[in-house]
Every structure is written in structure tokens, then in C-alpha cells.
Amino acid sequence: MSSSCIEDESLRSSEWFRIVNEMLGRAEIALNGPQPFDIQVHNPAFFKRVLQEGSLGLGESYMDGWWDCDRLDIFFTRAINAGLEHQLPHHLKDTLRIAAAKLVNLQSKKRSWIVGREHYDLGNDLFERMLDEHMQYSCGYWKDATTLSEAQNAKLKLICEKLALKPGMKLLDIGCGWGGLAEFAARHYGVSVFGVTISAEQQKMAQQRCEGLDVTILLQDYRDLHEQFDRIASVGMFEHVGPKNYATYFDVVDRNLKPQGLFLLHSIGANQSHDKVDPWINKYIFPNGRLPSISQIAAASEPHFVMEDWHNFGADYDKTLMAWAERFHKTWPEISQNYSERFYRMFNYYLNACAGAFRARDIQLWQIVFSRGVDNGLRVAR
């Protein structure tokens, strides 16, 4: 290579550095700085990669060990509050993905099983150690809690109380996970529970967890449900439904809910209605996921139900994710032989990035209670 080419490459590299440094400066984040939220760059190609590939390049370069940060959660909180995600370029693939989401049903029956295989079937050894004893992979309720176990126990109790569960009732759990809610409701409230999941690993553990209780766990798409239930709950599943299926989802709930029934929807939510999908999260964590907005949920639910209560405790997801991250780090030596170092960096990045987003209030956590509007004297629990 000629000296002029080397000089040109050096100039381009310094320009990439200058732009990234200037952007991070708006969030008071330094390159190779002393603060725990500053980033330490190990590969100078990092700057060009981030500016050309945006969010995907940022996440993948971290997975590749090109940079580090002691407190990724604070880094993301600062970056989001400074609006840096809006200043990163949109890769052509991101644009095509948004277009595809508009034209194609990415959460069809056939495609709905993808997230089960690629995320929830990662390995029970990981989730058993990272989560609480109820295996709750959704936001805990930290109002009076000081530990993850207390927060998740409080969340399960809150759901059951909001649904006003009584012995002898039939409860449908759409997206039942590892059976934590099913077991809790059957054991403490005397209800009969029917749970569905799209994860084979979750079904296996849920059946073991609920052995001896009046609980049925099936590997089944929610669209194939045709029964009648007194109560329906859906916890941390609506994020995988997709806008093209919101109307169908509420049709399914409607046809399976008895006239005097109640339905509780527990979901992460977006502040605005948009077609954005974070490309890194979509590729590595939750394929084909979409966060609903208030208006999208309202439009899909209003032909069927009265909204009795809308409870936002999104700030609690920050605490939940940080508790998961702490347990993940502690348990890593026990399970590291089953996973790669790149997986460790990927999962660490995911937990901390999401914690930062909730802390910045960029995304929310909603529990919504619906009824048919009958005069049943309902007073929703808190």
C-alpha cells in the first residue's frame, strides 16, 4: 500500500473518531475515559462500524470484544436521554426490515415458533439460575420488595388479586412460560389453569413444576384456543404478537372469555406508535418482536372490552433487569462450559441495554385489566 493510501486511511479513521467522540460528548460519555459509563475502545475499526451500521454495529462490535464499558446500563441511559439513537445511521437492512414488517405478517402461525426456538429454548440451566424460584421472565413488582424473589412473588399475587381469582374458576394463561403463574394461581387460589406456550423447554419444565396440581400445559399457538374461561392472563407474551395480529389476538381472548370474565394483559409498551424494531434485539434476542403502543392496544381492544385499569410500573423493570444481570454474572462460572464467551457478552449487553432503556423511561411496563363492562362491582387491586 502506498504512503498516500495509508495517510488517507488514517485521515478517515480520525474523522470516524471525531464524529463518534462528538456524539458521545452530548451524553457526557468519554472515549477511553475514567468513568464507569465511559467506553474503552480496543479496535479502531469500531468507529467506522458504528457509524455505518448503527445499533447493530454497536451491539455486534461489543460482542466481538471491540469495546468495553463497566456500566453498560448507565451508558445506555445517558445515550438514550441524549437522543443518540436518533443520530445513528439507519442501515439499509433496517429499512428493509421495517418495510417487511409492514408488508409481511412476521408473527404468523408458522413464524410464531421462531422466538421459542431461538430465545426461550436457550437452556433451562441459564434461566433457572438467573431468574427467581417462580421462573418469572417478566417485570417484578418492587413497591414493597427488596429482593428479586419478593418482587416476583408480589407480581404474581398482584395479577391474581387484579383478576379476583376464586376457587373453582378456570384460568387461561396465554404464553405461560415455565409455569410460574399457573402453579401460583392453582396452589394459592384453588383455580384450574390451562397454559399455552410456544417453547418446548418451557412446556417441559412447566409440566414438571405443576405436577399434582389442576394445571394443563400445552405446546400450542394462542390462535388455536377454543374454550371458555372465567379469567384470562397474558404475561410478557403480547410483545411477540405483532401489529398485524393485534385484532386477531383480542378476537381470540373475546371468544375464550366468559360473559362475566376478566382479562389481564401484562406487556412492555412503546411511548409512540411506530414501525421501528431495534435491529440488534431483533437479530439476537427476540426475533420478530414488536412493542405495542397505548393507541394500538386501545384500537384492538375497544371492539371487545371495557378498560377497567391501566397500571404502569415500567421503572420496576430496571430493577428487575439489574437483578437478573447480577445473578447472570454470579452463575456464569457454573454454566460457562455450555455457552461461548460471545454469548456471555451478548446476554450481558442485552440485560444492561434494556435496563438503561427502562431507566430512561424510553419504554414502559403495563398491566391492563379488561372486562365486558358488566356491573360486577369490580375494584381493581393495587
Rank of each mutant, 00 (worst) to 15 (best):
E128G: 11
A247S: 09
F17Q: 06
D318G: 03
D144W: 00
Q87L: 13
K155A: 14
I285F: 01
L84R: 05
A299S: 10
S138R: 12
K143E: 09
R97I: 08
G33L: 03
F313P: 02
N338L: 10
P243Y: 13
E150M: 09
C139F: 07
C354A: 15
R231F: 00
N338P: 03
D278A: 05
D251Q: 12
L156P: 06
V196Y: 04
I368F: 03
D214C: 08
L181S: 14
G261E: 08
Q337A: 04
G65M: 11
L365W: 04
L158Q: 15
L219V: 05
T331W: 00
P279K: 06
W324T: 15
A299D: 04
M237L: 12
V191Y: 00
N21W: 06
G25F: 15
L265T: 05
Y141V: 10
Q296M: 05
A247R: 09
T77H: 10
H188S: 02
I198G: 03
Q367I: 01
H134G: 02
D251K: 13
C354Q: 05
G25C: 09
S267E: 10
G212V: 06
P167V: 06
A298Q: 02
G116M: 09
H240E: 00
A151L: 04
P279I: 07
G140Q: 01
G289W: 15
S112Y: 05
E60G: 08
Y141F: 15
D221P: 11
V20T: 14
S295N: 07
L88Y: 11
D173I: 01
T77D: 13
G212H: 12
N352Y: 15
S340H: 03
C5P: 01
L58S: 02
E118N: 12
R255H: 15
F127S: 08
I232K: 05
A82F: 02
G116D: 03
M135T: 09
L11P: 00
D38C: 04
A360T: 03
I174W: 14
M346Y: 13
K109D: 02
Q220D: 05
D64N: 10
L56V: 11
S267W: 10
S108C: 02
G269E: 00
A27Y: 11
T320L: 01
H90D: 08
K155G: 12
M135C: 11
G179D: 04
I29Y: 12
E150A: 11
Q208E: 15
R209I: 03
D230A: 05
E53G: 00
T320C: 02
F127C: 10
C69Q: 06
R111G: 06
F76W: 15
G33V: 03
F313W: 12
N21G: 13
S149L: 10
E211V: 05
I363C: 11
V241H: 01
Q337L: 01
M322G: 01
E201I: 00
D254S: 13
R231H: 07
E227D: 09
I74S: 09
G25Q: 15
F238V: 11
Q87C: 07
S301Y: 01
D94L: 01
A164R: 15
V306G: 02
R361K: 14
D362F: 15
R255P: 06
Y62L: 00
G54I: 06
A145M: 02
D125V: 12
R49F: 07
C160S: 09
I368Y: 04
R255Y: 09
I368M: 08
W324E: 11
A300I: 14
D68I: 06
F76T: 08
S273Q: 14
F76K: 03
V374K: 14
V193R: 02
F347K: 00
I114G: 05
